[in-house]
Design a protein around this nucleic acid. Structure first.
Lengths: 223, 223
DNA sequence: GTCTATACTACGATAGAC
DNA sequence: GTCTATCGTAGTATAGAC
């Protein structure tokens, strides 16, 4: 390229790259938002790329600039949902930072449960995995692993504070607590999908179920 | 038709009707069996009539002699599954006919749970209802209603026998007991779908969970 | 009651122009 | 990065012959 001539090709500045990648992220987010909408309307497993493109005013092939396949969209949704659960739970626990471990555990469980009922599409993806051919990638699954790890940590804190028996922080304790909550969610979403958390016949039982857990692992109780 | 001439059209005898309707029933059963196979292989929501026909050595249009639509097949499967749950539970309880109500309740729950894990396709249909566009008909749903009714009756018997607090037979008691079991099933099927009931990290907790329930409704316990 | 033929629609994904 | 065009496949369902 001869010196003294400004390049006819526009130089890509840092700002341009920022703008471009921000634009790209926006499009990706919009795709996921629209996919979520459609899943809510037609069923999670009924997602179609054509429908997504139609609603976005795009042509279907354009979607392949952002996701290499339909399953990649499901995977991104899974990751998004798992991250949201992690965030929601952390936020609820942070709000009770000064409270005892059991209070924080209850707050985390309640917030997560409330979010799950308000977001049935994500719940179905995360907790049931009923989309034919879809399995989440390790990356998308990571926040879910972290959520369970943090649950275990909190249970251990309750044990250390003398609020729970040491068994509560075992594999069984973790499995039991997740199962108790999954049961309420499962029944609520299957039988009263359009009822709010507060009014649900099943989710209403959350405090009771948490009591059951705490009582079961009451320290000194030879279970 | 002139007398003295045997009809050239073969008279349809009672036996013929029997044979014909039996044959028809067999075909219907085979369709449902094959549909079940395919759902197990490809995913419940991925059922395709063409695939059913292919595997049966039929042409797709022939299926419409037996089911008016794909959803009708889902509905029949739902009904079949709900009836199976009812039967399995009743059989387990009948085997403990002479035992106390709580023992029978535990037996029923265990048998049902075991069956559900061994039949994940039906479980997904019955307990999650994640097939886009499908809702079970009242007829198909009837055995499920009956199962819950019988659960309530059994809880009431336990109350009457002084084994449980009267609250156990309330709406909340029923919802709680179904949720506890649904939780184990849900977690087991989503996280360890190919592990047996006996070895499952979650289903293994069934006795514990039943204890939780019984303890919660222990008579005289002011809960 | 099974078939052939077909209508109709839709889908996921790729190639290549602009 | 978006488009048009298209491939290849699949699907549900119906009409009508046999």
């Amino acid at each position: 390229m001869p010196l003294g001539f400004p390049s006819p090709v526009k130089q890509a500045s840092i700002d341009d790259l920022d703008r471009r990648s921000r634009r790209r992220r926006q499009t990706i987010d919009e795709i996921l938002d629209v996919a979520h909408e459609l899943m809510a309307e037609q069923g999670v497993a009924a997602l179609s790329l054509s429908a997504v493109a139609r609603r976005m005013g795009m042509q279907p092939p354009s979607l392949y600039q952002y996701f290499p396949s339909k399953m990649a969209i499901y995977d991104a949704m899974f990751g998004r949902g798992a991250q949201a659960v992690l965030d929601v739970r952390r936020a609820a626990i942070a709000r009770k930072a000064k409270a005892d471990p059991l209070t924080r555990m209850r707050a985390g469980a309640t917030a997560m449960c409330r979010w799950a009922i308000a977001n049935p599409v994500y719940s179905q993806l995360l907790f049931w995995r009923t989309v034919p051919g879809f399995e989440p990638s390790t990356e998308a699954f990571a926040p879910a692993v972290e959520t369970v790890a943090e649950l275990r940590t909190l249970l251990q804190a309750a044990v250390d504070a003398g609020q729970l028996d040491p068994d509560a922080a075992s594999d069984d304790g973790v499995a039991l607590s997740t199962s108790l909550i999954a049961g309420l969610l499962s029944q609520q979403l299957a039988n009263q999908p359009d009822v709010t958390f507060d009014r649900g016949r099943f989710t209403r039982l959350l405090p009771t179920v948490l009591d059951l857990f705490v009582e079961h692992y009451r320290p000194g109780r030879n279970s």
